[in-house]
Design a protein around this nucleic acid. Structure first.
Length: 572
RNA sequence: GGGCUCGUGGCUUAGCCAGGAUAUAGCGUCGGGCUUCUAACCCGAAUGUCAGGGGUUCGAAUCCUCUCGGGCCCGCCA
């Protein structure tokens, strides 16, 4: 793994720190105040911070520090200049040439970090009471993109889907399957949703049926074989459909872990005992509750119903205990409705000395008519969205590339459509609640996934043509110092940022930053494409260098798309 | 009622955690660009009291506080 921008920053820090010390001041690494800036490749605001201490103006101080700067030979830093109170850093030719060389050497590994700890990441974990809807896939897309980012950053990542196979909703599903006829001509998860919606309507009309649902839950908890089988059957049908949907979204899980596992193993019982041993528990109207007041929670947390059965929370505690033993870090991606409960979960785990998960919260996706609900049948299924988007994409391919084969059109439509869905969701930062909008989701003109994919296809197209027309050899040695045009340099610098983007995303657990970077990278390539002739370059050496640059762009765009879980078509 | 969170041009959105150089980009609008490597592209223009008030600071979209508006949550659902 070769560091570029991250290395540039390290070198800049050393140089600046030495200069500040030569100027007679002490400063910590964390006080160098580096920032990326439109005015330079890297800028420092350290002069502002030292100003009051030094009793000098930031401007004078910046000039003083700059005058003490010594750049070692071979540095990634080429020039450092004070501009007003700022100390601006520009990259050297060495950095640009190093970037091109690193991309060629590392290819699809470009941007990867050093090997790190093991992370266990849980995402999606939607209840198996119907198909995934457009709210659930925000979880899947954020979770899957994070998993890809963390892997590229160097972590060993195991991804899990936690399957609720014994809660109240599942009891309703199981009851629904017996009471109403399943239409198995449909996709299995949709068939489940259909009877689940009917069952909920029936329960609302006849509240007396609720006792029966309760008895089902008690039977499962007691290990009644027939009831467990009936729950399992319903859950399997839903999960099979959910897996199909996730596969199409290019989202994968290493394990589907069932809640009931922890009841059967005795882990749920054991963890309740451990919590009791802390002296924090109490009986409130027959239910076992945990006092978490010292963790800032006014209300107690119920971990056992008055009839003695466990709750989702109880089983989730046991699940997290198990996860903590399998990895160095545990990360959960949850919807905003889990904010409070995940805080209580963390507090309880902390109270019994178990490693707490890091929780990534995303806000809800609602419909113009209100929030989505499987129970009420108010949702847009992910399958429906995928079908509509890929159908629209197919029409686009048909009109833009009429001479291509049916198979080509279908493949491109799938990549473009699904890419558009993933990009549209991942580009927005998780803390914003959004309203689903068909028009936005179907728009391929804006700078979304198709824009990035198109730039990749363009790069591939140049290279293909070069192989045919000028017998281009991708392995031929080139002189990258011939890449001197503004748009060439801007493209190289943008590519060099990839490692630090991955690093930042992995640290902050914020995948939208990568989405924005990918778009800017495509932007930089498109400008190069527009302003600089590659195959038609007059000088043969220059042409060879530009072809390599196009190849580098192809590699980095493909890596960025791959990390976003979006396909990179060679032609579209 | 209480807690958490969001509010940035007509619409969508970056920057906010770690306060500093003309506030990011897209869509839409207006104008320009295909005899040249795929125009799902590129270039230019107009559009902002960064929800509103108050405070901290040499300096606030960013920190604190209040108000308003949207979303989510508030013990035996998950």
């Amino acid at each position: 793994m070769i560091l570029l921008f991250l290395e540039l920053k390290i070198q800049a820090a050393l140089i600046l720190k030495d200069a500040i010390q030569s100027a007679g001041f002490e400063i910590e690494d964390s006080e160098l105040y580096f920032e990326t800036s439109p005015h330079a490749d890297l800028a420092s605001r350290a002069a502002f911070k030292l100003a009051s201490l030094a009793k000098k103006s930031p401007k004078d101080l910046a000039a003083l520090i700059a005058s003490k700067i010594e750049i070692p030979d071979g540095s990634y830093i080429g020039e450092i200049k004070p501009v007003g109170p700022y100390i601006n850093f520009w990259a050297s030719r060495n950095y640009l040439d190093g970037t091109v060389a690193a991309i060629l050497t590392e290819q699809e590994k470009f941007g990867c970090g050093a090997p790190k700890d093991k992370i266990l990441l849980e995402h999606t974990s939607a209840n198996p009471n119907g198909p995934l809807h457009v709210g659930h896939i925000r979880n899947s897309i954020i979770g899957d993109t994070l998993a890809r980012i963390l892997k590229r950053a160097g972590y060993e990542v195991e991804v899990q889907y936690y399957v609720n196979d014994m809660g109240r909703q599942i009891a309703v599903v199981s009851w629904a399957c017996e009471r109403f006829e399943l239409d198995l001509s449909k996709k299995s998860d949709s068939a489940i949703a259909e009877v689940y919606i009917k069952a909920n309507a029936a329960l609302e009309e006849h509240p007396e049926y609720v006792d029966f649902i309760d008895s089902l839950m008690e039977k499962v908890e007691a290990g009644d074989v027939g009831t467990i089988e009936s729950f399992d059957k319903a859950v399997s049908l839903s999960v099979a459909g959910i897996k199909e949907t996730l596969l199409r979204l290019n989202v994968s899980h290493d394990k589907f872990v069932k809640e009931s596992t922890f009841l059967k193993s005795g882990a749920v019982h054991d963890i309740v005992e451990r919590i009791k041993a802390t002296g924090r528990t109490d009986i409130d109207k027959g239910a076992l509750v945990v006092d978490l007041l010292d963790y800032g929670f006014e209300k107690t947390l119920v971990i056992q119903r008055s009839n003695g059965t466990s709750l989702y929370t109880t089983r989730d505690l046991a699940y997290h205990e198990w996860k903590a033993t399998r990895a160095d870090r545990v990360i959960d991606v949850f919807g905003a409705d889990h904010k409070l409960i995940s805080g209580q979960l963390r507090a309880t785990l902390n109270a019994i000395g178990i490693q707490e998960p890091e929780v990534v919260i995303f806000e809800f996706v609602s419909l113009p008519e209100g929030s989505m609900s499987t129970r009420r049948g108010q949702f847009i299924s992910a399958d429906d969205l995928f079908d509509k988007v890929t159908t629209e994409a197919f029409e686009q391919v048909e009109s833009r590339r009429p001479d291509t084969s049916e198979e080509f059109k279908r493949e491109v439509a799938e990549m473009v459509g699904m890419g558009a869905v993933r990009y549209d969701i991942v580009r927005v930062s998780p803390e914003k609640s959004t309203v689903f909008n068909w028009k936005e989701a179907m728009d391929f003109e804006k700078q979304g996934a198709p824009y990035i994919q198109y730039s990749h296809a363009r790069a591939c197209s140049i290279l293909e043509k070069a192989k045919e027309e000028v017998a281009w050899d991708p392995n031929a040695k080139i002189d990258s110092s011939l890449l001197v045009e503004d748009s060439e340099i801007a493209l190289i610098k943008k590519m060099a940022l990839f490692d630090s983007i991955i690093d930042n995303c992995a640290r902050d657990l914020k995948p939208h930053t990568l989405a924005i970077y990918a778009r800017e990278l495509a932007d930089a390539f498109n400008q190069f494409y527009r302003f600089v002739p590659v195959i038609a370059a007059e000088d043969e050496q220059v042409r060879a260098a530009r072809l390599v640059l196009a190849d580098c762009a192809r590699i980095v765009i493909a890596n960025a798309l791959d990390t976003l879980g979006i396909g990179a078509p060679e032609s579209m």
